Simulated assay, not measured.
Amino acid sequence: MTKIFIARHAETDWNRYKRIQGGGSDTPLNETGLRQVKCLAGRLATEKLEAIVSSPLGRARVTAEAIAREHGQVAIEFEPDLREIDAGEMEGMSVNQIGGSLGVLLTAATEDGLPRLPGGESLNDVRDRAWRVIEKLVERFPDGEVLIVSHYFVVLSLVCRVLGLPPEAIRRFRMNTGSLSVIEVDAAGTRLIVYNESCFQVDSKPW
């Protein structure tokens, strides 16, 4: 059985002020985010991680680095397929500018399926590339524990995939910055065993 810890990166000011923070933004963690990574690193310090795989974006990288310091012999691998959704022309806009949450726009099904953001990706795109990462890790560590550090839409797309839900079901979930979810994968299938575990309570900030 492969046990995969999935961390959402800690808070940035763009999360706090609800700006669209997709794969094209490399925003730093704020003070709250730095406290969250310290707490998250402490939570994972006693786990026997064999690999740490992170989105290359700075907010995920710093989160992964804090955790890696508790696991001295485990180097961080950077995986482009764990980047946040490509928001295209909407990158950096406030939710007020787009008239609502990005999640609502992404789940507004059309005759052709879920929409692709102008100049960007769809939830299906995100789910498919992120699940390839999971499959590779299961193949590499069939009886191990690994950590991935990623982003809101990536993590929720994986959760929906594990639960057998369509990608548009992300609207039924909320997830804190700096939170931890855990899945297990074996020959019998996939299971979600922890969701949105947070070291301390913060407001849910999708962006």
Rank of each mutant, 00 (worst) to 15 (best):
G164F: 06
P167L: 10
Q201P: 07
P166A: 09
I183L: 06
S179R: 03
P166W: 00
A188D: 10
F173M: 06
A187S: 15
D203H: 12
L180T: 00
F200I: 06
A187H: 14
V182K: 11
A188N: 10
L180S: 06
V202M: 14
L163W: 03
R171T: 08
D203G: 14
G164M: 05
I170C: 08
I170S: 09
G189A: 14
G189M: 10
G178P: 01
R191H: 09
D186C: 03
V182T: 05
L163V: 11
V202R: 13
V182S: 05
V185T: 12
M175H: 00
L165D: 07
E197N: 01
V182E: 09
S179E: 02
P166H: 04
R172Y: 15
R191Q: 14
I183N: 02
G178N: 05
N176T: 10
S181K: 09
G164I: 11
G189Q: 09
A188K: 06
F200C: 05
N176M: 06
A187L: 15
A169S: 15
P167W: 08
S179C: 13
A188V: 13
G164V: 07
C199S: 01
E197W: 10
R171V: 06
V182F: 06
A187E: 15
G164K: 11
M175F: 00
I193W: 02
D203I: 06
D186N: 15
P167A: 08
L165T: 05
C199K: 03
R191V: 10
Q201Y: 05
T177Y: 07
G164Y: 05
G178W: 08
R171Q: 12
G189W: 01
L163T: 03
V202W: 07
V182M: 11
L180Q: 05
P166F: 00
R174L: 12
T190M: 14
L192C: 09
L180G: 00
A187G: 11
N196H: 04
D186K: 08
C199T: 05
N176I: 03
E168I: 00
P166M: 03
D186A: 09
V185Y: 13
P166G: 00
S198C: 07
N196V: 03
R191G: 09
L180C: 06
V182G: 13
I183Y: 01
P167G: 10
F173A: 01
P167I: 03
I193D: 03
A188L: 08
Y195H: 14
A169E: 09
V185D: 04
L192I: 09
D186V: 07
L180P: 04
E197K: 03
E168R: 12
G178V: 05
S181M: 10
A187W: 13
M175W: 01
V182L: 12
S181L: 08
V202S: 15
R174D: 09
R191T: 07
L163C: 11
Y195D: 11
P167M: 08
L165Y: 11
L163E: 12
A169H: 14
E197P: 03
F173Q: 04
S181E: 03
A169M: 07
F200H: 10
E184Y: 00
R171G: 01
I170D: 11
V185K: 08
